[in-house]
Computed example of a mutant assay.
Amino acid sequence: MAARDLQRYRRGHPDSREQQNLQNYRDDGYPELMPNVRFYRNEIPFQPNGTLIELLHYYWKDDYYELEMNHNYIQWLFPLRERGVNPYASPLTPHEIQVMRSDDVIRRRLLQSYKLMLGFYGIMLLDENTGDVWRAENWMERFHNLNTNTHNNLRITRILKCLGELGYEHFQAPLVRFFLEETLCSGNLQNVKRSALDHFMFTVKDNSECQALVQFARDHYRPKYQFELGPAQVLQERQPVKNHFFQECQPFQNIFLQERKPFKNIFLQERQPVKNSFLQKHQSVKNSFLQEYQPVKNHNKEYVRSANTWKSFLHKRKRAFIIVLLCFSIYVWLDLWQAYFGNTEDKKNLMCSRKA
Rank of each mutant, 00 (worst) to 15 (best):
W139L: 00
T150F: 03
H170N: 13
R135T: 12
R135K: 15
L175P: 07
T150Q: 14
E209W: 03
D127V: 02
N147E: 14
L180R: 10
E182Y: 01
R155E: 01
D198V: 10
V176M: 09
E96Q: 15
D206S: 10
L146F: 15
G119W: 03
D104C: 04
R158T: 04
F200R: 07
E137P: 01
K161E: 10
K115L: 04
T150Y: 07
V192I: 15
Q211V: 05
G167Q: 07
D132S: 03
W134E: 14
A136C: 04
I123P: 08
T157N: 08
D104Q: 14
I159Y: 02
N191W: 00
Q112P: 00
N129G: 08
V133M: 02
M117E: 05
N145T: 11
V204I: 12
A136N: 11
C185V: 11
K205N: 11
Q172V: 06
A173M: 12
T157P: 00
L213Q: 07
M201A: 08
S102C: 10
F202N: 04
L213I: 02
R135G: 06
K205D: 05
K115W: 06
N191F: 11
T148P: 01
C185A: 04
L163H: 03
L125R: 03
L197W: 02
Q190I: 07
G131K: 10
L126E: 08
N191E: 11
F120P: 01
Y121K: 03
A196E: 05
F179W: 10
R135L: 03
A212K: 15
H170Q: 12
D206I: 10
S208R: 14
L110A: 03
L146D: 06
L126R: 10
T130F: 02
L160N: 05
F200A: 04
